[in-house]
């Protein structure tokens, strides 16, 4: 389409330089996500497309292609994250 496409660059979160995301899998569906906990109450979760498809709660809550419906999050994954913290697989920054 004429003009060359500028290279697409996306800057990473500066906070990840010192404390990156950690891989965690859900015990229920096996979805693999990356997570980061700033504190017990503060969590980031990065999903990937295939794992969103795998999530059972998501499937139950949200038939695809309904506009405007919000899936607030997966309770099973939340529990899996808590267990990962207990196992020491998911660091909690505020505890350092």
């Amino acid at each position: 389409m004429g003009a060359p496409i500028a290279p697409v660059t996306v800057r990473p979160d500066v906070r990840l330089e010192t404390a990156p995301m950690s891989p965690v899998s859900c015990d229920t569906c096996g979805a693999a996500v990356e997570a980061r906990k700033s504190s017990w109450e503060q969590t980031s979760i990065q999903w990937h497309a295939a794992d969103v498809e795998r999530c059972l709660e998501r499937r139950a809550a949200m038939p695809p292609r309904i506009e405007g419906t919000l899936f607030a999050g997966c309770v099973s994954l939340r529990q899996a994250l808590a267990k990962a913290v207990e196992r020491g697989d998911l660091p909690v920054l505020a505890d350092d």
Partner: peptide
């Protein structure tokens, strides 16, 4: 891709 962030 889906990203969630809950603040303390």
């Amino acid at each position: 891709e889906r990203f969630e962030f809950e603040l303390d």
